[in-house]
Write a protein that binds this DNA or RNA. Structure first.
Lengths: 111, 111
DNA sequence: GGTCAGAGTAACCTTACCGTTAATTAACCC
DNA sequence: GGGTTAATTAACGGTAAGGTTACTCTGACC
């Protein structure tokens, strides 16, 4: 299983992120159906898919001349687990932020 | 607010990921205290911090000659929100995966 | 068997990323 | 003011990422 930074790096490219979203929304599909996520050539898409496969984000299933790609749920789950690991910290920070913003609003109202 | 791909790209570098984890675990600290996350020069760290700031992952607070860096909780919250957006999809996929693995185990036991 | 379509690989080019050292800015302190 | 420390900016170089076109490979279909 590749490290989390590899997963993040893979999702850090706009084209690959678009591919991920497409697969998440519409489910598995062959490489050809992913052509229009960006205005780039087919080989470019193919290489992005290769990167995503190596990063463990997508799985590939061969079906005749088609290669069917799908999101690997465990990759997403690993991101989720990482967030959960630190949730106590950043969730508390969020609350604090919200409070500060509320205070700011009050002050704005008074001044 | 920068797009999510920018956030992912920022976390896709091992040094920056290490910085994020440090700040998540130990809270805010000046740039100097982050030197030892990797065996690189101070300017290198400084530029990574700049990237993270632009990506909205960390905030910077000037305090005399020190710059205090901290995780911006809302950045993490945005990742969490994205996962939640698609959770129905990948969580279902996870369940299916778990089932398949259970079946595989049964088969192993019998054969 | 010949042809066609779907995907991927090879070779190449350009640009962006990440590191380095040297120089700069700004606050502290005597 | 002079010196020191914290941090960033500037300038430069090597490597890797991402795009392109040309080609190869492998099933499908007649």
């Amino acid at each position: 299983m590749p490290p989390l930074t590899t997963t993040f790096a893979a999702l850090g490219d706009p084209v690959r992120f678009a591919i991920a979203e497409r697969l998440l929304k519409q489910g598995a599909m062959p490489a050809g159906k992913l052509r229009d996520v960006a205005d780039i050539s087919a080989p470019a898409i193919s290489r992005h898919l290769r990167v995503m496969r190596k990063a463990g984000i997508v799985t590939q299933e061969v079906n005749g001349t088609r290669r069917i790609y799908a999101i690997d749920p465990s990759a997403v789950a690993r991101i989720d687990a990482w967030l959960k690991l630190h949730r106590d910290f950043w969730a508390a920070g969020l609350d604090r932020l919200a409070q500060v913003q509320t205070l700011d609003k009050d002050q704005d109202g008074r001044s």
